[in-house]
């Protein structure tokens, strides 16, 4: 039975969960869901490899990579708050990497791109049938690398090379360093660094992923997980049956779906307004509405 929510999309079930794998949890942003799911899918032969946000050339820079082993997937753990053009490797994954069943992790807009590529495979020959499993992440907005650099190095006054973890929660951008420094930047100071495309995005919880996950709604160290599609449901059921995850009903955890719905509503309503404003912006021609 499918649940439909105007802000949380269509989903079969929603739970709070975390991985039971100690190694994954050690470096996980929250519950290690995306990593554990991809590792599980790889080990079960559901996917041959997956596109992840790997390590770039500079500290905390993300760069898409095709991971074909557990080690490679684990290398890409943790949220890096800058753009990683995952879909640019989708085609190459089926070409020189020789994958037949591709897994993809990405944020909301990237899930939209994957579905669009499947629906209209322009310059994406033979791709639609090769997308085997997608895990979408909750996303409020994203930053270009240089923006993130400014936030961390100028606003938070920390060196990127010594940063251990970054997080956006409780209205602040948090930076934790190797030597135990914790710096925060209020989100009102970071808004101007967001990439403009994020301001017309009407999706907060990756409505188009097979499974979507993120920290909001669950306690620290746990993630909220939406199981959305048949494929997602099957993989999730098998993974839970195999003991890959501990789960709790979402109704029993704090802060729960209410917070998630509140944030989703905030993002979508705000961005809907931007889209409306763009209709009258410009001379004789409105700015494009990506959803029109």
């Amino acid at each position: 039975m499918m649940i439909e929510d105007p802000y949380l999309g269509r989903y079969v079930t929603c739970v709070s969960a975390r991985s039971t794998d100690k190694e994954i949890l050690k470096k996980a942003q929250d519950g290690g869901i995306a990593t554990a799911l991809m590792v599980y899918a790889l080990e079960q032969g559901i996917i041959d490899g997956t596109i992840v946000a790997g390590e770039g050339d500079r500290p905390w820079q993300s760069k898409p990579a095709v991971a074909m082993s557990r080690e490679d997937i684990l290398k890409a753990q943790g949220t890096k708050y800058n753009i990683s053009p995952q879909i640019s490797w989708l085609k190459e994954a089926t070409r020189s990497y020789g994958l037949d069943k591709v897994g993809i992790t990405g944020v909301c807009c990237q899930m939209q791109a994957v579905r669009k590529a499947q629906l209209y495979p322009i310059n994406m020959r033979d791709i639609p049938g090769k997308v085997a499993f997608t895990v979408g992440l909750f996303c409020m907005e994203n930053f270009p690398y240089k923006s993130m650099q400014s936030i961390v190095e100028d606003h938070a006054a920390q060196s990127l090379s010594s940063v251990k973890k970054m997080e956006i929660t409780k209205g602040k951008f948090w930076v934790y360093t190797e030597r135990g420094n914790v710096a925060t930047v209020p989100l009102k100071d970071t808004h101007k660094y967001e990439q403009p495309g994020c301001h017309v995005c009407l999706d907060y919880v990756s409505n188009l992923g097979d499974i979507s996950t993120g920290s909001v709604g669950s306690p620290d160290g746990w993630s909220t997980v939406f199981i959305r599609t048949k494929v997602g449901n099957e993989i999730w059921s098998r993974a839970v049956a195999d003991g890959m995850f501990e789960t709790k009903p979402i109704e029993e955890v704090k802060p729960g779906l209410d917070l998630l719905r509140k944030l989703a509503k905030e993002k979508i309503d705000k961005n809907q307004k931007t889209i409306e404003e763009r209709k009258t912006f410009g001379v004789n021609k409105a700015l494009r509405n990506p959803y029109a």
Partner: peptide
């Protein structure tokens, strides 16, 4: 798209080689 002046843009993975 892979052939270029001076060779090829990229080699294939060992998995791709096996697949071929």
């Amino acid at each position: 798209s892979n052939p270029r002046i001076g060779g090829m843009y990229q080699n294939v993975s060992s998995r791709a080689k096996q697949k071929m």
